[in-house]
Design a protein around this nucleic acid. Sequence first.
DNA 1: ATAGATGCAAAGGGTTTGCACTTGA
DNA 2: TCAAGTGCAAACCCTTTGCATCTAT
Lengths: 128, 128
Amino acid sequence: MSAERNTRQRRTIRDVVERAGRPLTTDEIFVSAQTSIPSLGKATVYRSIRALLDEGWLAAVDVPGRSALYERAGKEHHHHFQCSHCKRVYELDGCASEIRGELPAGFVSTGHDVTIYGACAGCSRLTR
Amino acid sequence: MSAERNTRQRRTIRDVVERAGRPLTTDEIFVSAQTSIPSLGKATVYRSIRALLDEGWLAAVDVPGRSALYERAGKEHHHHFQCSHCKRVYELDGCASEIRGELPAGFVSTGHDVTIYGACAGCSRLTR
DNA sequence: ATAGATGCAAAGGGTTTGCACTTGA
DNA sequence: TCAAGTGCAAACCCTTTGCATCTAT
């Protein structure tokens, strides 16, 4: 059996992801988890992320032009908003887009990703 | 003045991009340009790409989960298709999506990116 | 007891930079 | 001529791996 062990570091990492209201970078996870476990190593974070992905507990959020962010898996189809100012990524409810039009001959579509850019509430307030 | 110089390597890189019918990775540009200039160094490719971007001649294509691809700039708003099999990225004509729905309070949208996934003509033929 | 998990440090892969040399204008 | 551009190698950054140690079970 695969005998996942419930270690303190993995428990903490799950906790950090649960508490965050938005997808996090590996470094955000690392820094945040490190406040609970100062001795935490980055390799452990990377390995835990991979384990949680394999397990289906965590989902990777791919946004153009940067490395993956991670959020709790199991949510329904939705897209993301990236603030051009603070670079944070937020979840948007539901699929706010409609894909139409035709693909070139022979092309078959299996899915899509939509990222909306702009300013989040905090940053749009500042620039106003 | 910034006196852009028309060197053989930059000319070749522009040529490679022009000839490709799709966005290319830095490595594809490197390999392809190297067939004309065997002594070409990767650093030159990276520097040329940056120079051509600054100049506005080249545009970066950001696709989720991978580093940027590059295509000729100045095309009208369009999106991209990434083949899940061969990983190549193709341009789609026009904006085949409609963004609707509301953003959270305080959020302001300035743009969006859409990537459609699936199988391109060549690869869908193989798996059929 | 023991296999899975951890922390450290070294290794990788892709991109950038420093520097002496080359070359286009 | 002479600064922009080039090639090489070293430096960087982020991620992965090897290995001895630690720890849930």
